[in-house]
Simulated scan of single mutants.
Amino acid sequence: MRMHLPTAVAGLLLLAGVGAAAAQDVVIQPEQETIIKEYVKKQPLASVKIPGVELNIGSTLPDTVELHEVPNVKYRYVVIDNQMVVVDPDTRRVIEVIE
């Protein structure tokens, strides 16, 4: 029994580490964030309200919310409650809220 316990503990720790790595948020590179901010300043959007959606990193935006392109950047943006929100267009998940 003593021989198997350390192996089981190590296996559980390994699985926990894999789960934690998979749950990490997407990080926008500083260069891309600068491109997004500059583009949004030149192309301002009206702020929208989305009832029932908490504006947090990881929140999923409904399909009814129109996401706007930024040239040469994978991510999309929308302005919600006067905050610029960067969204992964594949999952519609909020990856950053920029004030």
Rank of each mutant, 00 (worst) to 15 (best):
M1F: 13
M1Q: 10
R2C: 05
M3H: 12
M3N: 15
T7G: 08
T7I: 13
A8Q: 15
V9G: 07
V9M: 14
A10S: 14
L12F: 14
L12I: 10
L13N: 07
L13S: 07
A16Q: 06
G17Q: 05
G17M: 06
G17D: 05
V18T: 05
V18I: 14
A20L: 14
A22C: 05
Q24R: 14
Q24L: 14
Q24Y: 11
V26Q: 08
V26H: 06
V26L: 11
V26Y: 08
I28Q: 07
Q29M: 13
P30V: 07
E31L: 15
E33M: 14
E33I: 08
T34K: 11
I35N: 09
I36W: 02
K37C: 06
E38R: 13
E38Q: 13
Y39M: 00
V40F: 05
K42Y: 10
K42N: 06
P44Y: 05
P44T: 05
L45Y: 06
A46F: 04
A46H: 03
A46M: 06
S47H: 12
S47N: 08
V48N: 02
K49D: 08
K49E: 03
I50L: 04
I50P: 03
P51T: 13
G52R: 01
V53H: 04
G58A: 07
S59M: 00
L61W: 01
L61N: 01
P62E: 03
D63H: 00
D63N: 04
T64Y: 11
V65L: 10
P71V: 04
P71W: 03
V73L: 04
K74V: 09
Y75H: 01
Y75W: 11
Y77E: 04
Q83I: 12
V85F: 06
V85A: 04
V86D: 01
V87E: 00
P89N: 10
D90M: 10
D90E: 12
T91H: 06
T91A: 02
R92P: 01
R93P: 04
R93A: 10
I95V: 13
E96V: 02
E96A: 15
E96P: 03
V97K: 05
V97A: 02
V97Y: 00
I98T: 13
I98F: 08
E99T: 12
E99W: 15
E99Q: 15
